[in-house]
């Protein structure tokens, strides 16, 4: 199947600074992607390039397999980047109708989308009178007004209060569950972990990781173990030769397996060695821990 969007060695230089460095990504239909990276890692620049507002320095990208030129393709997707930008002197309704004219889609969706983001009652208020949360919600409605094949969201919860963040997240989940492909750029990892099926990790414009969220969080589970005699437990664990690193803490041992190993199997093996555990915890790393590990290690690419 042709990917919705494909980037090949896309780069952007701002003077001497390389904001995006030979980035290659494929966005397939039906997935929910999280584009992760600290501030200044090139997320927005990357999105800017595929959205026709930043000129790439080198490399290329294709929408829908290159069958459409960029601005035609953009009519079939929806995107909000950074801050919601609308004409402040126009109402929500007028702004969305203008978007429809630009996207060449019928006005019929406007009502439905404004209701979806709970702005229908305020449809005739000028955009300038909206709170930040409302502006952000209007931006989402505008991005959805053409029933996009791909929805791009850049930091959609930036600057919102907890209630606003919650509303936006619930909306994204709802949209993703309807089968829309979503690309969500964020530095808020729990946000990505909650809604995304795939992640792409960027740092300094370089891709560090691309794959399913599950693989990233599952593959590297780890154990927290405790026994009456921690020293003995440690030596037995070393003997078993199943672990890559074994850390002895004051009251427990943290052990990272070389390959996946089920907790009951480990328990059995230790029992055979006459070690009886007082605690056994199998933990999966959170995306945040994974992310920090990926981006902190300079050799990891």
């Amino acid at each position: 199947m042709t990917p919705l969007l494909e980037l090949q060695n896309l780069s952007k230089n701002y003077g001497k600074i390389r904001a995006v460095d030979r980035l290659s990504i494929k966005i397939e239909k039906g997935n929910v992607y999280g584009l992760l990276g600290p501030n200044g890692s090139g997320k927005s620049t990357t999105l800017g390039m595929v959205l026709n507002v930043v000129n790439p320095s080198s490399g290329s990208f294709q929408w829908f397999g290159g069958t459409l030129n960029v601005h035609q393709a953009l009519k079939r997707i929806g995107a909000i980047i950074e801050r919601p930008n609308f004409y402040p002197y126009m109402t929500a309704m007028q702004n969305l109708k203008l978007v429809c004219t630009i996207k060449q889609c019928p006005y019929e969706q406007v009502e439905e989308k404004l209701k979806l983001v709970e702005l229908w009652d305020r449809r005739d208020s000028n955009f300038s009178t909206y709170s930040l949360g409302m502006k952000q919600r209007l931006a989402i409605a505008s991005a959805l007004v053409n029933d996009p094949e791909l929805l791009i969201l850049d930091e959609p919860t930036n600057g919102l209060d907890p209630k606003g963040i919650h509303q936006i997240r619930a909306l994204i989940t709802k949209i993703a569950n309807q089968g829309t492909t979503v690309l969500l750029a964020s530095h808020l990892l729990d946000e990505v972990e909650k809604v995304c099926s795939h992640v792409i990790v960027l740092k300094n414009g370089v891709k560090y990781y691309e794959g399913a969220v599950d693989e990233l969080t599952h593959s590297q589970g780890f154990f927290e173990l405790a026994a009456p005699n921690l020293k003995l437990l440690e030596s037995i664990l070393v003997q078993l030769n199943l672990f890559e690193t074994i850390k002895l803490n004051s009251d427990k041992i943290t052990a990272y397996p070389k390959a996946a190993i089920a907790p009951e199997v480990l328990n059995q093996k230790l029992a055979e060695k006459k070690i009886y555990l007082s605690a056994l915890n199998f933990k999966k790393k959170t995306l945040e821990e994974q992310f920090l590990e990926l981006t902190d290690n300079p050799n990891n690419t």
């Binding site: 959205l51 026709n52 507002v53 030129n69 960029v70 601005h71 035609q72 393709a73 953009l74 009519k75 995107a79 980047i81 801050r83 930008n85 609308f86 004409y87 402040p88 978007v99 630009i102 996207k103 060449q104 505008s142």
Partner: peptide, 17 residues
């Protein structure tokens, strides 16, 4: 000043348009 040029382009207007 309203940054709507950016939004117009993202919405699918070409620079020529």
């Amino acid at each position: 000043s309203y940054k709507t040029l950016k939004q117009n382009l993202i919405d699918g207007l070409s620079k020529k348009e």
